[in-house]
Every structure is written in C-alpha cells, then in structure tokens.
Write a protein that binds this DNA or RNA. Structure first.
Length: 423
RNA sequence: GGAGAGGUGGCUGAGCGGUUGAAAGCACUGGUCUUGAAAACCAGCGUGCCUUUACGGGCACCGAGGGUUCGAAUCCCUCCCUCUCCGCCA
C-alpha cells in the first residue's frame, strides 16, 4: 500500500511514477472520493464530539441529583444524524481502502521503462555457457532415462505439473537445500527459520498477494487457510503488527519451504518438465531493514543469491526488471537467470526485490527510530536463494555428459555422501 | 472433540455503566544530587486519524465484529485466540 499522505498531497507524482508500469491511476475519482471522505469525517467527528459533551453533562447532572429529562430530550435528535454519518463514513473509508490496496507500488527511479520481459535490462553476466561436443539433453530426458524423474506417475497421484523424484536425484534435490541454507546462515549472516505452510488472509494481504491475486493461490475453504505461494509470506509476516528494536536490525531470515501455485492463466506455458510446477521448493531470504539502507541491502541480497550460483559454477545473468514486468508490491527487482543448455536459454532462478515500505504499511511492521523516538515503517526485501527445483534442473542440464550421467558439483558432494556422479 | 478460565498500554496488572486513554509497578527519556556511576527524588512517556501557519483542539482504539444505552474497557450476541483438565492423535 502506498502512503495515503502521498496520495493526498502528491497524487500527480504518483500517477507519473505508475505510468512506468503501465498502470493508469484514476486520479479524478480518487480525489473526489477522498474529498467526500474528508467532509463526512469532519462532520461525523463534530457530531461525536457533541454527543460526548452532552453525555458527560448528563453524567454530572445525575451525580449531582439534578433532573436530567431536559438534557435527554436535547440529545435525542443527535442520534439518527450521527448514525447516518457514521455508516456513510464507514462505507466511504472501505471503498477508499479497497482502491488503495489495489494500487501497485511505485517503481524506483532506477527502474527502466518498458512493457514486457523483453524490455528488462541486463546488468551483468557471470560464467560461460558450457560448449558440449554432443547435443545436450534437457532435464526431462536425462531424468527419465536415469529413472529418477517421473512426471507420469505424479500425474496419476495428483495432476499435471507435479513430479516424483527418486534415488540420487531426490537426494541431490535435498543436498541443494542443505547447501543453500548452510551458505546463507554461515557465510551471509541469516537466521534460519521454519514457518507455517498454511497462512491466513491477513498474511497474504500483508505481502500483497491479496486481494488482487487470489486466483494464484491454493485455498483450503474449510479452515480458511491458503497454501503459501512462497516463504516470503509467512516469513515477512513474522514482523506483522510489531515494533522492532533498532539494535536488532537488520532482521535477516532464510527459510526453506515448499511453494504452491495454481498457475492459473499459464496453461500453455512451460508444460514440459519441472520448470513450472504446482509445488516446488525454494530457499528464501527475507530482510527487514532501516529505510535508509534498503537499496544497499538489495545489492547485497542479490549478491547472496548469486553466490549460490557461483559456488555451483552455473552461468547466469542479472537483469533489472522493467516497470511493466515488476511485481505488484515491488519497487525494484533483479532477476537472476541461469543458463539451461536443454533450452539454450537463460531462465529465471531467483528474484530479488525491495518493497520499500509497501508491504510494511500493509503489515504495520515498524521499528522505533532512535532519532525521532517514533515507530516508523521498516523496509522489506526478499530474494530466492534459490528456487530449488530450477536449480536442480540447472545442475542436471549443465553437468550432464555424453552418456547421460550427471556429475555432481564439488560443493554438493559432501551432502551426497561423497558421490561425484549420478548414473 | 468435551469441561472450565481468560484476552486491558513496551511488560506486569487494576478497573466491571458516567468527569477513565485508562490506577499502580517495571521499563524508557529528561532533570536534581554525585568527581563519575548507582540509589533517591522531580517531571515526562501509547497508536492512528481529522483540524490548525503555529500554539492548540477534536475523533477513534482496552482480542475482532455487531447490539443495548444519552453515555460501554465495563452489559448482551457472534467469531478468533491463549491457558488448564479430559479424550484422540503424529
């Protein structure tokens, strides 16, 4: 949610910023609604004030043993008027809140203009795609040939967009998780957390998945809980309705969870293999920081995700998302794209974002600024470090040999009981 | 799932229809005292919103949402959560 203060006072500026993400803000109706809100609020509060004043008088008169009938008659006429005003105020405030909570974050000034992912700007590349002296296979062919990836069985168990992993590939998947968690906790200073995989509405609202993206979520009607689409939701919500002590900041959490996405609206997309699944695992980094640091932290956090790819020796590039490709809550996002020989393409494997105070305002996640003594909104950031399923794909495809064996990256061998090749 | 108890400010905890945004204590901040510190004493100390050039004034908030009343932290209803005991269970 954007700062209502800014919306009132600098609406044109916000509108201009939002054009970068091709979002058109209906300035006129928003302004008209807020003017109405203001008028009704002033009126309501005046009536409430009057009622309070007279009720106090009645209290005093009664205590003094005076006759209160005249006073009661006097206050009677207030009631209906006040009720009407209060309910109208509530209606208008709800309407305003609905509109406000549907407006995306304003992009940071360094975010490039553009409509689609084709307009994203490459920042840097790391590593050289391997030149194979044979035609490289994709992870589906490799995994099925090894008997360790089984999409058909998963479909009979659940539906499409699931997978069954077996043997050394299942273990490699687990090894990746361990390796990522160890790296972030031991080398990057994150605290490991374990969180609920089911969350309530308020949590999803807080991070911005609701109300706009309800279709993307798996929902359990009976208990009114949602399966998490990313650890970002439960982990960031650790700070909901809290005032964080300045001297424990920044809060840095790393968390491994499964993620569940309905993938509504992406029917034809990435139907082959493990790229786009209803269920996948991810290691997520989340930071809650002082506002003045957040862009510096975004660079660091992106570096932490890159470190995993570098240790795995997987070639990748970093792109800055353009305004049109930016997520709803994000002010600036770097995507990390790993080289997949099977697709002969760079594909997204991590997304690192600064949400500034956008999520914090929805969450009421604050810290006490020692300079002002007042609670102020924190800035929230997160980044995948990394998407485990896609990392598994990248390892399988980049480390294949002409016999269809998968060589295990050196940093993972200790998690594989010393195994160095899967065959 | 059954029975009971309870949810009040950063924390502990009083209030159970009127002048209570809320006693008291702790914590915190400023001051006095002290070479310094501690102790003691004095003062201050919730959040959001509206209004005002400013000083200030006003409204709302005692788990959430409704209701009764001139007036609700206090009474009634619904829901959520926590704790204790019993049952069931990884």
């Amino acid at each position: 949610m954007l700062d209502p203060q800014l919306i009132r006072n600098s609406l044109d500026q916000i509108q201009l910023a939002l054009t970068k993400r091709a979002y058109t803000l209906d300035v006129d109706s928003l302004q008209a609604l807020d003017t109405r809100r203001k008028k009704i609020q002033v009126q309501t509060q005046a009536l409430q004030s009057e009622r309070n004043r007279r009720s106090k008088q009645i209290g005093k008169a009664k205590a003094a043993g005076e006759d209160i009938h005249a006073l009661l008659d006097d206050v009677e006429s207030l009631g209906d008027k006040l009720k009407a005003c209060e309910s109208e105020l509530q209606t208008v405030q709800l309407e305003l809140h609905d509109i406000l909570s549907g407006i995306p974050n304003t992009p940071h000034e360094t975010v490039p203009a553009g409509q689609t992912e084709d307009d994203n700007v490459e920042v840097r590349r790391w590593g050289e795609p391997v030149q194979f002296d044979f035609v490289p296979k994709d992870h589906v062919d490799l995994g099925e040939a090894l008997g360790m990836l089984d999409f058909a069985t998963a479909t009979t168990i659940a539906s499409s967009r699931f997978v069954v992993m077996q043997g050394a590939v299942a273990r490699l998947h687990r090894a990746l998780i361990q390796f990522m968690l160890d790296t972030h906790t031991q080398e990057h200073g994150y605290t490991e957390v374990n969180v609920p995989y089911l969350v309530n509405k308020d949590s999803l609202f807080g991070t911005g998945q609701l109300p706009k993206f309800a279709e993307e979520q798996f929902y359990i009607d009976k208990q009114a809980l949602y399966l998490i689409p990313t650890a970002e939701v439960p982990v960031t919500n650790i700070a909901r309705d809290k005032i964080i002590d300045a001297n424990v900041m920044p809060l840095k959490f790393v968390c491994h969870t499964p993620c569940f996405r309905s993938e509504a609206g992406s029917y034809g997309k990435d139907t082959r293999g493990m790229i786009r699944q209803h269920q996948f695992e991810k290691v997520e980094m989340v930071q809650l920081v002082k506002p003045e640091n957040s862009y510096q932290v975004l660079e660091q956090l992106t570096g932490h995700a890159e470190a995993i790819l570098q240790k795995l020796n997987l070639p990748y590039r970093v792109v800055t998302l353009c305004g049109g490709d930016l997520g709803f809550s994000s002010a600036k996002t770097y995507d990390l794209e790993v080289w997949l020989p099977g697709q002969h393409k760079y594909r997204e494997i991590s997304s690192c974002s600064n949400f500034e105070s956008f999520q914090a305002r929805r969450l009421q996640a604050r810290w006490r600024n020692p300079d002002t003594g007042k609670p102020e909104l924190v800035h929230t950031l997160n980044g995948s470090g990394l998407a485990v399923g896609r990392t598994l794909i990248a390892v399988i495809e980049n480390y294949q040999d002409k016999d269809g064996k998968i060589h295990i990256p050196a940093v993972l061998q200790r998690y594989m009981g010393g195994m160095d090749v899967i065959s």
